[in-house]
């Protein structure tokens, strides 16, 4: 397969970027999107040109490093996959593919297709955990948790922090990311001691980072590679109201 790529190139945080066109030829349909970029980079390296920088690591859809806006879709056209899992068989031969970094004020571009997502870490740091020191814990089976709750908490906990929800949101809102953590910990009895302060701090930090408001378009749920449901946003809203008025 052959493709024409229009890729966003930007030297560093402060410089202005632009789209540059590249050709990707002899691409096998079984290649992943990143392996296709590897092939382009190999040719660039041989020509002694600056290779296209993109974040990646595990290449099996779990580390959350990769994330490209591919022809108008976060992580490309397939549902429930990350960029590294996306195979080229989902594109047409000869297609022109536009590759952009996540765009949000809270995710500044560092270089080419790499953005700075440390805002997510700061949201978690503000309260996305249960405060427990090593060793000061009761026996694991002393807290029975209904299976349904544990499963739903797991659904929320599956978030890989890739940022696709922010990238696709018309308001660059981080509600799905933030709510997944709030919801996970609200579903488990261990998380109840801090539920009030947790949701308030996390919402506050999210706002401070410059993410937008949620206007319930539910696009995040559609683009989330782990298919995290907006029901977690519902629960988070409930937690927030509860924290404010009860």
């Amino acid at each position: 397969m052959n493709f024409t790529l229009k890729i966003w190139r930007q030297h560093d945080r402060n410089s202005k970027g632009k789209f540059v066109e590249y050709k990707a030829s002899d691409i096998s349909p079984d290649m992943s999107f990143l392996e296709m970029l590897d092939a382009v980079n190999r040719d660039l390296a041989k020509k002694n040109e600056d290779i296209i920088a993109f974040d990646h690591d595990c290449r099996e859809g779990i580390c959350g490093s990769c994330g490209l806006y591919i022809s108008g879709r976060a992580h490309g056209p397939q549902r429930g996959v990350t960029t590294c899992e996306l195979r080229m068989r989902h594109f047409h031969d000869g297609e022109t593919i536009v590759v952009e970094p996540w765009r949000a004020k809270a995710f500044p571009v560092i270089k080419d297709l790499i953005v700075d997502r440390t805002a997510f870490d700061r949201v978690i740091q503000s309260g996305g955990y249960i405060s427990v020191d090593t060793g000061s814990t009761p026996e694991a089976s002393s807290i029975p948790i209904p299976k349904a709750n544990a499963e739903e908490a797991m659904d929320a906990a599956a978030c890989i922090g890739c940022g696709a929800c922010v990238a696709v949101c018309k308001n660059s809102s981080a509600m799905l990311f933030m709510s997944a953590k709030v919801s996970q910990l609200a579903l488990l009895p261990q998380g109840h001691a801090e539920r009030k302060i947790r949701v308030q701090r996390m919402v506050h930090q999210m706002d401070k980072e410059g993410f937008g408001h949620c206007s319930n378009t539910y696009a995040c749920e559609q683009e989330c590679p782990k298919k995290i449901s907006v029901a977690h946003i519902t629960r988070m809203n409930r937690e927030f109201i509860r924290a404010a008025f009860w």
Binding site: T134, T137, P138, A150, Q184, L185, Q190
Partner: peptide
């Protein structure tokens, strides 16, 4: 014990 207390959603 530690992980359960941290909210790890074990099966």
């Amino acid at each position: 014990d530690q992980c359960v207390a941290q909210g790890v959603p074990f099966g």
